[in-house]
Design a binder for these strands. Structure first.
Ligand SMILES: [Mn+2]
Ligand SMILES: [Mn+2]
Ligand SMILES: [Zn+2]
Ligand SMILES: [Zn+2]
Lengths: 136, 136
DNA sequence: CTCGCGGTGCAACCCGGTTGCAAAGGTGAC
DNA sequence: GTCACCTTTGCAACCGGGTTGCACCGCGAG
């Protein structure tokens, strides 16, 4: 477990501090995306800005990706190992309107969208809202 | 023009105050979605909270719809007349990464998405990001 | 041992959104 | 016309999420 954490950090050239190990472990364990507020709850002894900067470091090194689910708070989830090289979000995200958890649906691809002329697409953000398996 | 504004307000049972007429006119004239900050720029003599509450009133009466484009600021656009009865956003939105304008693509429908079992969809928010016709 | 750098904590800030409350305005009853 | 009542507006303050400047600390290189 610990070794897996360290391997992941090393693979992205991130120095494995205690804080980073803990945060990455938490991110990997949680089945849904994690917000800064979640981290604050979990690691109440750590400073908000440390948690924030850790997320930013992870994101910059493409260890995690940020999800804008429209709730106003950013969520983060660990990237698949596969997305080592180029980091693009080609999967769908699901926001449960009951528990307000956000899930990466890695198996659901974002469909191609045909736009009117004049619009050049570069990325797509697709959020499905509804009720998750845990809340039904 | 003025009559059209008033007709629209009346159709949604919104009392046509001067402020509301002006704001609705502005919303109808703009080819892209409008943020609270946009309204503050345009109507600098009016109070932020008045503008805010006007938007909320319009939204509650389904005269406009809110767009979460992931920029952190909410955008609003007038609904089509067609969406009188039930208000659902079944069209795609486009966010230009150059000029940061958001457009309603009323002609582009949101495709159906097949989810893993356990997830019950209720709404879909689809944002395409790229470069708009004005910025290319 | 000393220097330098990166990580952390603390405090403050920013921005968009939101609310409580009082003043202003409009409308109908009398 | 006057009053009571309800709605709209303005002002001020607040809130939560995100962000930053700066000082301190710990560790590794030299
Ligand atoms: Mn994801
Ligand atoms: Mn729209
Ligand atoms: Zn749920
Ligand atoms: Zn543009």
């Amino acid at each position: 477990m610990k070794e897996k954490i360290d391997r992941k950090l090393e693979a992205k050239s991130i120095k494995p501090t205690a804080m980073r190990q803990l945060i990455l472990e938490y991110l990997m364990e949680s089945r849904n995306a994690v917000s800064l507020a979640d981290l604050e709850d979990k690691f109440d002894y750590a400073d908000r800005s440390t948690l924030f900067r850790t997320l930013k470091t992870f994101e910059k090194h493409k260890l995690i990706h940020c999800i804008e689910d429209g709730t106003g708070s950013q969520k983060y989830a660990v990237c698949l190992d596969a997305c080592e090289v180029d980091h693009e979000d080609f999967h769908v995200h699901f926001l449960c309107e009951k528990c307000h958890q956000t899930y990466c649906l890695y198996d659901v691809e974002v469909p191609a969208i045909k736009l009117p002329s004049g619009f050049t697409p570069e990325a797509i953000n697709l959020i499905v809202k509804g009720v998750c398996h845990a809340c039904r």
